[in-house]
Design a protein around this nucleic acid. Structure first.
Length: 875
DNA sequence: GTAAGGACTTGAGAGGATTGTC
DNA sequence: GACAATCCTCTCAAGTCCTTAC
């Protein structure tokens, strides 16, 4: 078929852009509430998408999947997915346009035309049916190299390479892509400037033997309240974040182990597939890696962490990684001082009596507290859920005691307490500004000491120093434990982690004591307690996102995703080959990896029965995937947070066939990948790239898409236009990652108001145009609709006014469109977790966009480590 | 080999703070 | 100044992935 016929596997890929990229995107407007709400008032989401597609050629030409049945997670959960081509392909007639900076330019990461397509997220690579419907692709094409007609339009070197690829699956990538070293150099040039900066900071650390502040430009962002920041490359960076609870180091062994470590690294190379072993390594790079090995080898790593370490070694940042004085293996800090945690205030009885069977009932403060927990949730959807009510009643009855009059939920009337609560809320709202300020200051004063920790002499913000108050568990989706009482946490539940020499935080509740005090410097948590709902699980108190420890970890995450770019071609070749493997396990791993790569699915760990029934890739059930005509797969399942994932995508014929095989003879509720779990999948991925796990693909896909779209679509426009480009790219990523949000209750009203305003402006514009033509004939303006006489303006003044109103209308219409498009897409999550901030910072620098327009104060602090990136940075 | 536990990241939503509009 | 819209921060649930124990 035309659709899948164009889906060329990477292994047959000619390494070029001829297989025009698409993004398998979700139609945001079809998501969640929109299906329920917008159907009447507006064209269907899919229609809208299509409508806009005709207007906005950049992103909107796609094939729309029909909206699905009603949402599962309340009315707000479903999302309609649209298979959309990326604008790059649309901008080029034959799909060869995935723009890249010229080879050797500062922004050129690989500088290799042949790799240009391989570097792309898979989701960005395959053409869709619409795009290629007129092409001559047939199903036969699936296993064949692309037709020459396409390849011919490429530079010759690319064409030649494509056929080399076909025949050289077993050849190391480095051999296949000898040109790569040039690209490496290019990348080196790009990134070294960053390294140098980081390194210079690190050297100072070493020489002084003290912790040094971050470069001025970064620290100034953090300097509010006199917060000092530790540079990220202060040495801890040498330790892989995955190293946990490692054994103490014997300093006498350090030198010896250093040597052993190097040898081990070399041995390890044997275990790495040939393709990666020598792959990007120019000799220059290898030398630098060796140096790093020596430096970091003062730390003894367990075998299992070596991958991570090698990962770090490959990272450009590893060059500046030094172990700080006094640190050991897996060590996260040397000294740690903090004040522990703050507890919620004890319950204060309000004395308002609820009704039972119409009669007021007496409750003890403890009983009343739980009743109040339920009463204040009266307005929420939870209060109507049977499971929630059932769990609440079960736990409340324990507190009420066997002999209490309250037996049945149906006879309970919580309204008096609910009304009391509403009044309290209103009272709070009615407080004067001064009163509110006073309350805020009092709270701040009380909490100030808990807000900070001193880590290795540097003051760092603590993330969540407040112990969670008691309440009713608000599990998401159809969580079997929703409504259960989350009891009050006491000091005796809490384990404190603090430096050995630091004063142990005073227990704030007289007569009680901490459960335990530990001095474990291989972890970053300051305190934890067991979750009362899931005692197997813990709640941790960590440093804030802006802390250096978190920043370091963040940086490593993005470097790992960036590294995937170098391996992706080989990985795709491997799984493509395995689509047809006789070994079912291998075939399942191949298909699962393909789906994770292509659709940015989560790994999907096994879940217990007492958790919400959600799935990820490895836990997909047969019923979650439907084979559709023309080699399409329809996915429909509840993912993380019970957010519905709905998508219909064309896949390669081999994948389609394999999925059909995996389903054969199984029940709807059986696992699609019965031979697979996340451990096996990740173990396999690690064979393909050090430290690679399923979630790295999400980061890679997201960051790559952002970088690509920003590079491609940013023009020399005004800031507003540039910001629009950024928001569009951000949105694209959010859709790929399935980041949804509930449509605001007032959305429709807001839209209506905007429409009104636009209509009013248009009416005004019409009048002005009439006045202008009258003015040009020397006539006075016509009376306004309400009969009033208007000022007699000159044609010039009228033209100016017309121009102003036209601009206003354009802006308003643009705002309206964006608002409607984004009504159910959450942009924040990807910005916080998936988009390498260096891409944003570099783009802002290149295009003179104030970074504050993109990152708020919190994000600026969180990403302080990325602020010094060179404008030429490429993901 | 696998289940359980531990340590972290990712995620949506609530509600407060700020900004815009009239 | 009042109100609405938007932005931002905080909260805590729910994931991932690693280590440990058996």
């Amino acid at each position: 078929m035309a659709v899948h016929g164009c889906l060329k596997p990477s292994v047959f890929d000619n390494g070029d852009d001829d297989d025009a990229p698409i993004v398998f995107r979700r139609n945001s407007s079809g998501s969640k509430q929109s299906q329920a709400n917008s159907a009447v008032k507006k064209p269907s989401s899919s229609q809208r998408q299509d409508d806009s597609s005709s207007q906005n050629s950049n992103l909107q030409k796609g094939k729309t999947v029909l909206p699905n049945k009603s949402s599962i997670r309340g009315p707000t959960n479903s999302s309609t997915l649209t298979v959309q081509p990326r604008s790059s392909e649309l901008n080029s007639a034959n799909g060869t346009s995935m723009s890249k900076p010229p080879i050797g330019s500062a922004g050129d990461y690989d500088g290799n035309l042949d790799d240009s397509d391989d570097d792309k997220p898979l989701s960005a690579r395959y053409p869709n049916s619409v795009q290629k419907s007129n092409s001559s692709c047939t199903s036969k094409d699936l296993s064949s190299p692309p037709p020459n007609s396409i390849a011919e339009e490429k530079p010759k070197i690319a064409l030649k390479k494509s056929y080399d690829d076909d025949s050289e699956d077993e050849i190391p990538l480095s051999a296949k892509f000898g040109v790569k070293s040039a690209a490496d150099r290019s990348r080196k040039n790009t990134s070294n400037s960053n390294d140098q900066k980081a390194t210079s900071v690190t050297i100072k650390v070493e020489q002084n033997g003290i912790v040094k502040r971050e470069p001025q430009s970064t620290s100034s962002l953090m300097s509010s309240k006199g917060l000092n920041k530790r540079p990220l490359d202060d040495g801890r960076s040498a330790r892989p974040s995955s190293v946990k609870k490692a054994k103490p180091v014997d300093p006498t062994k350090i030198k010896q182990e250093s040597k052993v470590k190097e040898e081990e690294d070399m041995d390890d190379e044997d275990n790495i597939p040939l393709g990666q072993k020598k792959k990007p390594a120019s000799s220059e790079k290898q030398v630098s890696s060796k140096k790093v090995t020596k430096v970091v080898s003062t730390t003894k790593f367990k075998k299992t962490t070596k991958m991570s370490k090698k990962n770090a070694k490959n990272s450009k940042y590893s060059k500046s990684m030094k172990v700080p004085p006094g640190s050991g293996e897996g060590q996260k800090w040397t000294t740690l001082v903090h004040s522990g945690v703050i507890f919620p205030p004890p319950y204060k009885s309000h004395g308002v009596k609820m009704l039972y069977n119409g009669q007021p009932v007496d409750l003890t403060p403890e009983q009343e507290e739980v009743a109040t927990m339920f009463a204040v949730m009266k307005d929420t959807e939870y209060a109507t859920k049977q499971k929630f009510i059932e769990n609440f009643m079960n736990d409340w009855k324990v507190i009420l005691g066997r002999n209490h009059v309250i037996k049945k939920f149906d006879l309970c009337d919580f309204t008096p307490i609910y009304e009391w609560h509403q009044k309290e809320k209103e009272k709070k709202k009615q407080m004067t500004a001064e009163e509110k300020k006073a309350v805020k200051e009092a709270k701040l004063k009380q909490e100030e000491k808990f807000m900070w920790a001193i880590v290795d002499g540097v003051k760092e913000k603590v993330g969540n120093f407040r112990v969670e108050p008691p309440g009713l568990f608000r599990g998401r989706g159809e969580h079997p434990k929703m409504g259960k009482l989350k009891r009050r946490i006491r000091p005796s539940d809490i384990t404190i982690n603090i430096g050995k020499d630091a004063p142990i935080p005073e227990c704030p509740i007289p007569g009680e004591r901490w459960k335990e005090v530990k001095h474990d410097n291989t972890v970053t948590w300051l305190a934890y307690w067991n979750d009362p709902i899931n005692p197997k699980e813990s709640k941790y108190v960590f440093l804030a996102a802006s802390s250096s420890l978190k920043g370091q970890s963040d940086k490593e995450k993005y470097e790992k995703a960036r590294m995937l770019k170098n391996y992706i071609k080989n990985i795709r070749a491997t799984y493509t080959k395995d689509f047809t493997s006789k070994d079912v396990s291998k075939r399942q791993i191949a298909v699962a990896t393909y789906l994770i790569d292509k659709l940015a699915l989560r790994a999907g760990n096994e879940k217990d029965d007492d958790e919400a029934d959600t799935v990820g890739c490895c836990t997909l059930k047969v019923e979650n995937v439907t084979l559709m005509p023309e080699n399409k797969l329809k996915f429909d399942f509840l993912g993380k947070d019970s957010i519905r994932y709905e998508n219909t995508v064309p896949v390669e014929a081999a994948v389609y066939k394999a999925v059909g095989q995996f389903q054969t003879g199984k029940k709807a509720s059986d696992d699609l990948f019965d031979k697979l779990d996340t451990a096996k999948l990740n173990a396999h991925l690690k064979e393909l790239m050090p430290g690679l796990t399923a979630k790295v693909f999400r980061t890679y896909n997201a960051s790559f898409t952002l970088d690509d779209m920003l590079t491609r679509d940013t023009k020399d426009d005004n800031i507003q236009e540039k910001l629009k480009v950024y928001q569009t790219a951000n949105r694209e990523v959010a859709i790929i990652c399935n980041h949804q949000r509930t449509v605001s209750k007032s959305h429709d009203a807001q839209m209506a108001r905007l429409d009104e305003k636009i209509a009013e402006l248009k009416r005004e514009l019409g009048e002005l145009n009439g006045d202008l033509s009258r003015a040009k004939k020397g006539k006075p303006p016509a009376r306004s609709p309400d009969g009033k006489t208007k000022r007699n303006l000159t044609p010039e003044a009228l033209e100016k006014k017309i121009s102003q109103i036209t601009v206003k209308i354009d802006k308003m219409e643009m705002d309206r469109q964006l608002k409607d498009q984004n009504k159910n897409v959450a942009l924040g999550t990807s910005k916080i977790n998936y988009l390498d901030p260096r891409i944003t910072v570099a783009w802002c620098k290149r295009h003179e966009v104030p970074i504050e327009k993109i990152f708020n104060k919190s994000l600026l602090a969180k990403f302080s480590w990325a602020m010094d990136v060179e404008p030429s940075f490429k993901f």
